[in-house]
């Protein structure tokens, strides 16, 4: 198929940036979206035009490095996939595709489609861990049975890949889905209970400090989340946060 790509080009963080138009032909529907961009970049290099910079690494939908806002949706039109797993069969011959970076004040653009998501790391550093040393002298792994349902729900929350689609999709640029996924994982497990109160307060405060917006329950984040992280996690975090503040 033949396509017209409108791609955000921005030389650096201080540059203003604009949408540029690139036609591309003979795109196979079995290509992934990023393979289509690879082909475009090879063509640009041949024409001595600087290729489009975009983040990507595992190309298996798990590392969370790829992003892209495609036709107004984080990770594009397909559901439950990251951009690297989006395939061109979701598009039609003759389509115009708009490709932009994830946009949020807390995700400044680095170059072209590459953004800085280190604010996510800083939120995790504020409390996204169990304070246990890695000495190996912990108790036996089976000494505390965990109900299967709790373990499974904790796992579902823990599958968040930290890509930032939730923030990019939210009209308030809220990071609640991301933060609540980590808070939920630990609050559902006995190992995380001990410092659950400090954790939720510290992580939420850090989230605010980093400039992410508030949650107004539109649910866009859940729809666009490539891992299907549930809004239930946000409710759970709110409950944890309120209880923690009451008991403080």
């Amino acid at each position: 198929m033949n396509l017209t790509l409108k791609i955000w080009r921005q030389k650096s963080n201080t540059d203003k940036g604009s949408l540029e138009t690139y036609p591309i032909s003979d795109v196979s529907e079995d290509m992934s979206f990023l393979e289509m961009l690879d082909v475009l970049n090879e063509e640009l290099i041949e024409k001595e035009i600087e290729p489009v910079a975009f983040d990507h690494d595992c190309r298996e939908g798990i590392c969370g490095m790829c992003s892209l806002y495609i036709n107004g949706e984080a990770h594009g039109p397909d559901r439950r996939v990251t951009t690297c797993q989006l395939h061109m069969r979701k598009f039609n011959d003759g389509d115009t595709i708009f490709i932009e970076p994830f946009r949020a004040n807390s995700f400044p653009v680095v170059k072209d489609l590459v953004v800085d998501r280190s604010s996510f790391d800083r939120i995790q550093q504020a409390g996204g861990y169990v304070s246990v040393n890695t000495s190996g002298n912990t108790q036996d792994a089976n000494s505390i049975p965990i109900p299967k349902d709790d373990a499974d729900t904790a796992f579902d929350a823990a599958t968040c890949i930290g890509c930032g689609a939730c923030v990019a999709s939210c009209k308030n640029s809220s990071a609640m889905l991301f933060v609540s996924a980590k808070v939920s994982q630990f609050s559902l497990l006995p190992q995380g209970q001990v410092e659950a109160k400090e954790r939720v307060i510290n992580m939420v405060n850090k989230m605010d400090e980093e400039g992410f917006g508030n949650c107004t329950n539109t649910g866009a984040c859940e729809v666009e989340c490539p891992k299907g992280i549930s809004l239930d996690n946000i409710s759970r975090m709110n409950r944890e946060f309120i209880t923690a503040n009451v008991k403080k």
């Binding site: 861990y129 890695t134 190996g136 108790q139 792994a141 049975p145 299967k148 373990a151 499974d152 995380g192």
Partner: peptide, 18 residues
Amino acid sequence: DQCVAQGVPFARDYGGLL
């Protein structure tokens, strides 16, 4: 043991064990 202590959610059976 270490990973469970860190909160890694391994698969469990209905008895709650790994």
